[in-house]
């Protein structure tokens, strides 16, 4: 087993020191530890604002953690040699949550998609052209779009430009931040199938963020559920979706099955604030199982068996239910 990426006890705070304003500090990521094995997918799910994108910023090294360490293939990224450093930059690709702002508006789409190949300096013009054409076809973009600029595309087409660019040079690790949110179901299916095929063929590793539970479940081997800057549940996809043990995971997954607005539960309890952190479990204010202990003592992420980790004082005592079924395994009677 080899981990492509490992985060160990990563913290991230942002300090705001405005002129004539008092300095405030927001503690955005708290003690995040994650491992992603080669050729597998880690799914990140959680509430909007819980720190999923910030976690990927650490991995992309756009920002440094305030505390904690990041390892690439077992090596601390702060101590990489020049060559490995370069390899890392080439081999880690990303599809940003907001595709439009991440595409250079002055470049033609053909150039945008080809860029990661061009940077490696290993391919001639003909080869590059061929690969651009092939990946565009795979993501469902017409060939005559190559000369266009990003502003000349629809939301979903921009998202596919970003995906084509991220996949073109068979990277080792791809971070996909809501990569299919703007696509119709048919194109979404096409992209999801493509991602799976690419992974099977090239042993690509993915970190996949989505609010759509079914989409995350489709691709992920392991899932981390985030809430207010912490990981509240972490484990194999089957454990998280079918055998979930954290009340927030239950809430997230049961909201997914609501088919009628009037059956949606009225939201009670406040969203915790970064500037006035609650004592105890951050979810306690909204949790129907919360006890005094929850409101006073912050629960730690604990292994409850077989690598399934939960941060909840009541994990062993409450019974939660899941509404998702996984039909991924091929029927056993089939030869």
């Amino acid at each position: 087993m080899s981990n492509v990426i490992e985060l160990k006890n990563v913290d991230k705070s942002y300090t705001n020191s405005g002129f004539l304003k008092k300095t405030t500090c927001a503690h955005i990521l708290k003690n995040i530890s994650l491992q992603v094995e080669k050729g597998t997918t880690l799914g990140l799910v959680g509430e909007s604002g819980s720190g999923k994108t910030t976690t990927t910023r650490m991995i992309l090294r756009q920002e440094k953690p305030t505390n904690g360490e990041l390892f690439y293939e077992g090596k601390n990224v702060e101590e990489l040699t020049k060559e490995v450093e370069e390899e890392y930059r080439n081999n880690v690709q990303v599809v940003f949550q907001n595709p439009y702002s991440s595409l250079n508006p002055k470049m033609r789409v053909g150039e945008i998609i080809a860029e990661p190949l061009v940077i490696t300096g290993k391919y001639n013009k003909e080869e590059i052209k061929k690969r651009v054409r092939s990946i565009m076809e795979k993501v469902g973009l017409a060939q005559d779009y190559v000369e266009r600029f990003p502003s000349e595309f629809s939301g979903g087409q921009r998202q596919r430009i970003a995906i084509a660019r991220a996949l073109i040079q068979n990277p080792q690790l791809v971070i996909l931040d809501e990569p299919v949110s703007a696509l119709d179901v048919s194109v979404r299916g096409q992209i999801m199938n493509l991602l799976k095929r690419v992974q099977e063929k090239n042993k690509t590793t993915y970190i996949f963020i989505s609010h759509d539970i079914a989409t995350v479940g489709f691709l992920s081997d392991t899932i981390a559920v985030m809430y207010f800057g912490t990981i509240v549940e972490y484990g194999k996809t089957e454990d998280i979706l079918e055998n979930l043990r954290h009340p927030y995971t239950e809430m997230l997954i049961s909201s997914d099955s609501v088919r009628n607005l009037s059956e949606a539960e009225e939201e009670s309890g406040e969203i915790p604030s970064h500037y006035d952190e609650p004592k105890g479990c951050p979810f306690a204010g909204r949790c129907k199982y919360a006890t005094d202990e929850c409101r006073n003592v912050t629960p730690q992420l604990k292994d409850i068996g077989d690598g399934h980790k939960v941060a909840c004082h009541n994990a062993e005592s409450i019974t939660l239910k899941s509404v998702v079924k996984i039909n991924r395994r091929k029927p056993e009677y089939q030869i």
Binding site: S186, V187, R188, G189, Q190, M192, N193, K196, I213, A214, G217, F218, L241, D256, S257, V323, V324, K325, I326, N327, R328, K330
Partner: peptide, 9 residues
């Protein structure tokens, strides 16, 4: 919303 082996397109 269940999870399957492949998507229909």
């Amino acid at each position: 919303g269940n999870i399957r082996e492949r998507y229909e397109t």
